[in-house]
């Protein structure tokens, strides 16, 4: 791999692949991730997010391809990377039968942080993540949101330059999710680069950049705005009677990617090969409404357009 690669790239992967038997969990993935940004992996369950993160953290050996993380070549330099990165696993991986404080003390000792520094750092984390009242509670007896904050505290205890978060908010309610993202932006501002995986659109939209994964293949990447601007479809909303019937009609057409009902409206994605989607719709259906308009695409529209090819 290119040794004098751009210094502001924190993760680079070229043609990264990983097979489990016949299954291609990750297939020829190319990544260029900027320093000091939040980068997202967006994709449904089983698309290979965890596998990709495990390779980028040196936990799994790639079947083929090259990885450089923080200037280190993986998997050879995996041990050197350990001190500079933090990893929050998808499944809670601290000890259920230790208290919050004991868990943090354990992690601190493992990273060689002791004495007064340890106490100071742990107290800092306890207050940052609102765990002060909980420090004597067993980790196993806490709620999803509390456990997730504890896991984040543990992953950032040694102040890593790079943080991997694998579906950090899957067991967390919306309010806690919002707070959690505020914490991530704080970390980012303090200079931490973050790679986060998710299957929530709203979370993906908060990332500086993201990659949309499907079946181990990267379907698209870029900032959410770029992705929405470059969407290969028109988004049309129709307000009318008999939407169920209309939907059935529309999804028969090869030019229509999908149609989904939102209350009294039908949101239709039409391939960009169609030049005038409103004419197209009126021509192909007997719509009796003037409430038909082109709207701004959402990330979900991008996601459906990118990954829809398989469904047809």
């Amino acid at each position: 791999m290119n040794r004098d690669s751009a210094p502001d790239l924190i993760i680079q992967a070229k043609q990264l692949s990983r097979n489990f038997g016949d299954l291609k969990a990750i297939d020829k993935l190319d990544l260029n991730i900027d320093k000091n940004r939040i980068y997202g992996f967006l994709g449904p369950n089983g698309c290979g997010k965890t596998t990709a993160i495990r390779m980028l953290t040196g936990l799994l050996k790639p079947t083929s391809g090259e990885i450089r993380v923080l200037g280190l070549t993986l998997p050879q330099d995996a041990e050197k990377l350990r001190l500079k990165m933090g990893y929050m696993t998808q499944k809670f991986s601290l000890y259920d039968d230790l208290t919050v404080k004991e868990n943090l003390q354990f992690i601190a000792k493992i990273y060689g942080i002791f004495g007064a520094t340890q106490n100071k750092r742990i107290n800092e984390l306890l207050s940052t993540y609102g765990l002060n009242q909980k420090q004597q509670q067993l980790a196993g007896s806490m709620s999803g949101g509390q456990r997730q904050r504890l896991a984040l505290a543990a992953a950032t205890l040694h102040k890593p330059e790079l943080l991997f978060l694998d579906e950090p908010t899957s067991a967390v309610d919306p309010e806690n999710r919002r707070d959690f993202w505020e914490q991530l932006f704080d970390l980012c501002q303090q200079g931490t680069s973050i790679l986060v995986s998710t299957h929530y659109m709203d979370e993906a939209e908060r990332c500086h950049k993201l990659a949309i994964l499907e079946d181990g293949i990267k379907r698209a990447d870029g900032s959410p705005e770029q992705l929405m601007n470059n969407i290969a479809a028109h988004v049309v909303e129709i307000e009318a009677e008999g939407l169920r019937h209309l939907k059935q009609q529309l999804i028969q057409l090869p030019e229509v990617v999908t149609a989904a009902q939102l209350g009294a409206r039908l949101r239709v994605l039409i391939k960009s090969s169609v030049t005038n989607p409103i004419d197209f719709l009126q021509h192909h259906t007997e719509i009796v409404t003037n409430k038909i308009s082109i709207v701004r695409p959402s990330l979900e529209d991008v996601f459906i357009t990118c990954t829809g090819s398989r469904r047809q």
Binding site: L59, R82, L83, T89, K91, Y95, I110, A154
Partner: peptide
């Protein structure tokens, strides 16, 4: 089994 190993092996131990 409890998944602690995945965390432990990403530490410098």
């Amino acid at each position: 089994e409890h998944g602690n190993m995945e965390m432990l092996i990403t530490t410098p131990i």
